[in-house]
Design a protein around this nucleic acid. Structure first.
Lengths: 181, 181
DNA sequence: GGCTACATGTAAGCGGTTACATGATTTA
DNA sequence: TAAATCATGTAACCGCTTACATGTAGCC
């Protein structure tokens, strides 16, 4: 697939930045749908440079410390825009250790099942609360064709996903509590 | 993590089976939350055998063809039940190439955005329809502490997830259609 | 006889994580 | 002056996919 390169090109298409700044972006802005550590970013930047898709100039902070500030090239932008317009087949369901555990959990009894489910629920509720805090940054609907709008859309996606998970967990809790017939 | 071994132990805790049968289970029953190819399963079974967590006896179909029918050992069951009762931290959001693409899509214009969104929507709607077909196998709520109930719970999880995705995509489509102000 | 399903394995390579490694700059 | 942050890299390893490799059994 090689998606990481497009994530990097996408960031550089918005603004020039260093590898270090990119790693911060992956930890914060992109966290909901893509992540990458610096140990993956630096080698990728190296190969993108080699292919002429990005270039960099060195900036010196202080007296010695060198920073490589990357920018996207014409060729890089072309490749990025091509990817940006391709239609993808929907991905396979993500692996989920908790669902796997739940699937086999008939052998441990309803009481234990409830413990696991309530634990997961509280974690997802906290996550949802956090996402809703973030959405306060958008008091009004961002206008069409802006970065703000796409930011808002992916945030809404994360919120709806967490809400669905919480709904599912509560429903499952009720199912485990049902009285025998 | 090493989750694959627990998926295999979980299957063998339900019933004895061959590696080939397991790969079919991963393709069908477990598909919504875990998958594994035979190229991963056979080596794992080898190492589980070495560790004494599973064992096998050879069955002959026809005249020559040998089939290894695996069963879980006492030691394997102990390890499985321990895993089955551990509380997991909620997983990081799964990587999602489409959301990444959407996040950067302000540069391609609302028309193209709409094409991508409607394409994804139709795919997820089909998937949802398929899952709802499957749920017809449960005309009545399965009773507590049964395999049927856990089967039902993970199926409900898949359905609620797809419904949330469809809701999100429709909402995003509306956002892209908004008139300028 | 030919096709599909049954059945078991190995090897190369990719994407990703964790850990190793080094050093400068800023802030408390 | 000590700690946190900035800044860039490499190496070992793991989980997984794709492809290679081989052969049998059942069915039309």
């Amino acid at each position: 697939m090689g998606t990481l390169r497009y994530a990097i090109l996408g960031l550089l298409n918005r603004r020039d930045m260093s590898g270090y700044e990119m790693s911060k972006e992956f930890e914060t802005t992109l966290f909901e749908f893509w992540t990458a550590r610096h140990s993956q970013i630096y080698p990728e930047l190296k190969s993108l440079t080699k292919e002429g898709l990005v270039e960099y100039k060195i900036e010196v902070s202080g007296t010695v410390l060198e920073k490589k500030v990357y920018s996207i090239t014409e060729k890089g932008r072309d490749l990025f825009l091509e990817w940006e317009q391709t239609l993808f087949p929907m991905p396979a369901s993500p692996k989920d250790e908790f669902r796997l555990q739940l699937f086999f959990s008939d052998c441990i009894g309803a009481k234990r099942q409830l413990q696991m489910l309530t634990d997961q629920l509280s974690q997802h509720e906290h996550r949802l609360q956090h996402l809703k805090e973030n959405s306060k940054k958008f008091p009004t609907l961002p206008p069409k064709d802006t970065e703000d709008l796409t930011d808002y859309m992916v945030l809404r996606g994360a919120i709806l996903r967490e809400e669905a998970t919480c709904t599912w967990l509560r429903e499952s809790i009720d199912l485990c509590k049902q009285t025998e017939d």
